[in-house]
Simulated assay, not measured.
Amino acid sequence: MSRSLRTAPSAVLVALSCLLVPFGTLAAWAAYGLTDTRDYVTTMAPLASDPAVRDAVADTVGDEIAREAGMNPLFLRDAVRSFTATRAYRTAWNAGNEAAHTAVMRALNDESADRDSYPVTVDLAAVTSPMKRQLTADHVPFADHLPVRHTRVALLPPDELAVLRKGYHVLDVAGFWLPLAAVLFAAAGIAMAACRRRAVTATALGTALGGALLGLAVAIARRLTLSDLPDAAHRPAAGAVYDALTATLRTASWLLLALGLTVAATAWLTRPHSPAVRLLRRRRVSATPLPTAPPEPTRVRV
């Protein structure tokens, strides 16, 4: 096969591989990084001690209880904020996140569930009940009068549940096949290339560019997500949650960038006519000892 006939398909395969790198990483993160309940609870657990998250919980829960009990919301906010520093709150936080994630994943996976008979909700009593027990044990005034009602908060819009299920199944398939296709295209493009060193360099630079674009997309999405929130006071808490959920994705983008640049630099420095290879060859030649002439025979004068 001629050089031109080998170069064009190789370039197409390498370009496709580099294009699939950020999309494959994003799909794999969404399909595997956000669907495991145990990993999700572990990721969200440190946020129980985040000051912005604690303030948002105190404002939300305190206002809800004050509206139902007809009490002063400022007093209840301070009471809830003090409760967020206890071990009982961290236990309730983990239990609430586990229950919410389990309900969402069960709704996305169970296509036979009826939308009306299977609401995707979480019960706020999981937070208010241990809070009431803690405040009563601390002898907080009027703590025993706090209402504990099973108020269910919708996690997924019922009219969009079918669309979300289809999107979830698409991500589940793409999370496996897109990264695999990127690897296969890269291997085929390098094997078919007329100059494999250049193909490796191009693939590495494309991978680094994909990692950089992925990190930029995560940063832009964070800015857009926070700017769309109606309540500006809760934006720090939402930012902390966003950063916790996308930590693995941001790490993957940095790894792709570092790996691509490292491979590209190694391929460039080890090319046959590079200055580094020439210098190494000169040092080897200079270090090789020169052959010595045999000693002349000693003449004896008679």
Rank of each mutant, 00 (worst) to 15 (best):
Y242W: 15
A287M: 04
A221S: 15
W254V: 10
P230S: 10
R283W: 09
A238M: 10
A244E: 06
A240T: 07
A265D: 03
A267L: 05
D228R: 08
D228G: 09
T248H: 13
D231H: 07
R281G: 10
L259A: 15
S253I: 03
T251S: 13
A244Q: 10
A233K: 14
L229P: 01
T292R: 15
V263F: 02
R223N: 04
T251L: 14
A238R: 02
P272S: 09
H273A: 12
A267R: 00
L257A: 15
D228S: 14
T292N: 11
A267E: 04
R222C: 03
A264D: 00
A252C: 13
L216Y: 04
L280M: 11
V285R: 10
T270E: 02
L259Q: 06
P272Q: 05
S253N: 01
R281S: 12
L226I: 03
Y242M: 04
L256G: 07
L261I: 14
A232Q: 11
P295H: 14
A276C: 07
R282K: 10
L224W: 12
G239I: 03
L280H: 10
A244L: 07
A237K: 10
T225M: 11
R271D: 02
A264H: 01
V218D: 06
A244I: 03
D231S: 10
P289E: 09
S286M: 10
L256V: 06
R250I: 06
A287E: 12
R282P: 04
R281A: 13
R222S: 02
S253M: 00
T251V: 11
L290Y: 14
P272D: 06
L224D: 14
P289C: 09
L257I: 12
R283N: 13
A247C: 08
A238Y: 07
P230T: 00
A265F: 08
A240K: 05
V241I: 15
T246M: 09
R222L: 00
R223L: 01
R278A: 15
P289T: 08
R283M: 12
T266R: 02
R222W: 04
A233D: 15
T288W: 00
V277L: 10
R283E: 10
P289Y: 13
W268Y: 05
P291V: 07
G260Q: 04
S286D: 14
A233I: 00
T251W: 13
L261Q: 05
P294M: 04
A244F: 05
A233P: 02
R223V: 00
R282Q: 14
T225P: 05
T266S: 11
L261P: 06
A247M: 14
